[in-house]
């Protein structure tokens, strides 16, 4: 058990050193600019469909289940959409989508870097005198931190839209009530909070996945293992930081 803690602390230390190397920056701004654009396109456009799909259904299901639980005739219908708003914007959009994001973007980052490692492409960069960590990983992290908040905004919109559509189709809640509930006693800080969370999650997923991929050793099998570990570790980090942020920013 002691060995386990030791290796965990070592791993975390290595991760922070890795993060440190990101900023011992060598290449020109122009190089990074191009790389960030490329990464942003692949991350953003690549995840758009999945994020929209998942969040639409998430909103729809939340609406149906909330309605199912509101049995008392004393509770007005608009409370349903109010609950949907709070859960999706505060929690489901940033956090659940982060889990999906880790599965899609994180695993591909780790897989890509792992393959570059085992086929000596990273060594080739190092031999050219390029800081491979900052060249390869920094653009991924920046792109992730730029694109993920946008994905979260889209996810929030899609989730609320999903709820609206399901309300309309099944007539659980009328469109008028739904929109009224969404606007009723709205606290803008929830949006700010969701965006703060999404920037933090984007950083965690991109950096942990890159770290796992970058330090892959061995062959194709190990690349697969790194990808899986990248997803698991990112998800754990996302959930822990979700709790910490909630405590920090919302706790009394």
């Amino acid at each position: 058990m002691q060995g386990f803690y030791c290796s965990m602390i070592q791993e975390i230390g290595k991760y922070f050193i890795f993060i440190g190397h990101l900023f011992t920056n060598r290449e020109s701004f122009k190089t990074y600019y191009k790389l960030v654009l490329e990464e942003s396109i692949s991350i953003g456009i690549g995840s758009l469909f999945l994020v929209a799909l998942v969040s639409t259904f998430m909103g729809a299901v939340t609406t149906v289940q909330t309605a199912f639980n509101m049995v008392s005739p004393l509770i007005p219908d608009y409370v349903i959409s109010q609950v949907v708003r709070e859960t999706t914007v505060l929690e489901l959009a940033p956090t659940i989508i982060a889990v999906i994001y880790a599965g899609k973007v994180g695993s591909s980052m780790a897989g890509g870097l792992g393959t570059m490692r085992i086929t000596e492409q990273i060594d080739a960069l190092e031999v050219m005198g390029i800081n491979s960590i900052s060249y390869l990983v920094l653009p991924k992290i920046i792109a992730s931190m730029l694109m993920y908040p946008m994905l979260v905004i889209i996810a929030g919109v899609c989730a609320l839209g999903g709820g609206y559509v399901v309300g309309l189709v099944t007539s659980i809640i009328s469109p008028g009530d739904y929109v009224y509930g969404i606007r009723y006693s709205f606290n803008e800080f929830t949006i700010t909070f969701a965006l703060i969370k999404s920037v933090v999650f984007a950083f965690l997923v991109a950096s942990i996945s890159s770290y796992k991929g970058y330090y892959t050793q061995g062959g194709a099998l190990e690349v697969g293992i790194s990808s899986t570990q990248a997803v698991t570790n990112s998800v754990i980090a996302v959930l822990v930081s979700d709790y910490l942020l909630a405590q920090l920013l919302l706790g009394q």
Binding site: R26, T119, E120, V127, G129
Partner: peptide, 23 residues
Amino acid sequence: DRDTKIEIRREIGMLFQGGALFD
């Protein structure tokens, strides 16, 4: 130090056993 290493490395060309081309 790091700078000396980078300076020397920029004068190096290397062919790896597997080619190591960027995919």
